[in-house]
Computed example of a mutant assay.
Amino acid sequence: MNTLVAAFEEAYGRAPQGVWRAPGRVNLIGEHTDYNDGLVLPFALAQGVSVAAARRDDGVLELRSLQAAADGRSLPIDGLAPGTVDGWAAYPAGVAWVLREHGAGGASLLVDSDLPQGAGLASSAALECATALALCDLYGLEIERAELARRARRAEAEFAGVPCGIMDQSAALLCTAGHALLLDCRSGLSGQVPLRLGEDLSLLVVDTRAAHALTGGEYARRRAECEQAAALLGLDSLRDVTDLASTLERLPAVQSRPSLPFRRRSGQTGPDPATLRRRVQHVVTENHRVEATVGLLRADALAEIGGMLTASHLSLRDQFEVSWPQADATVEAALRAGARGGRMVGGGFGGSVLVLTATDRATHVREAIDAAYQARGWPAPHYQDAVPSQGAHRIL
Score class of each variant (00 low, 15 high):
Q47T: 07
Q47E: 14
G48P: 03
G48L: 09
G48W: 03
S50E: 08
V51F: 04
V51R: 05
A52K: 03
A52N: 02
A53L: 10
A53R: 03
A53Q: 00
A54E: 01
R55Q: 15
R55C: 01
R55T: 01
R55D: 05
R56L: 08
R56I: 02
R56G: 02
D57C: 04
D57F: 05
D57P: 01
D58H: 01
G59T: 09
G59P: 06
G59C: 03
V60T: 13
V60P: 01
V60K: 06
V60L: 12
V60D: 01
L61Y: 07
L61A: 04
L61P: 02
L63S: 00
R64C: 04
R64P: 00
S65P: 12
S65W: 11
S65C: 07
S65A: 13
S65N: 10
L66K: 07
Q67W: 07
Q67F: 15
A69W: 07
A69M: 09
A70I: 03
D71V: 06
D71C: 08
D71P: 08
D71A: 15
G72Y: 08
G72M: 10
G72W: 11
G72D: 06
R73V: 07
R73P: 02
S74Y: 10
S74C: 14
L75Q: 10
L75Y: 06
L75I: 15
P76Q: 12
P76A: 11
I77Y: 00
I77F: 08
I77K: 10
D78S: 15
G79Y: 10
G79N: 14
L80C: 09
L80H: 12
L80W: 07
A81F: 14
A81R: 15
P82F: 13
P82R: 11
P82Y: 12
P82A: 14
G83L: 10
G83W: 10
G83H: 13
G83Q: 11
T84S: 15
T84G: 10
V85W: 08
V85D: 01
V85S: 05
V85K: 07
D86W: 11
G87C: 08
G87Y: 11
G87D: 12
G87S: 09
G87R: 10
W88P: 02
A89R: 00
A90S: 15
Y91Q: 00
Y91W: 09
Y91N: 04
Y91T: 09
P92C: 06
P92F: 07
P92T: 13
P92G: 10
A93Y: 00
A93F: 05
A93I: 04
G94K: 04
V95L: 02
V95I: 13
V95R: 00
A96H: 08
W97I: 07
W97N: 08
W97L: 06
V98S: 02
L99C: 05
L99Y: 04
L99P: 09
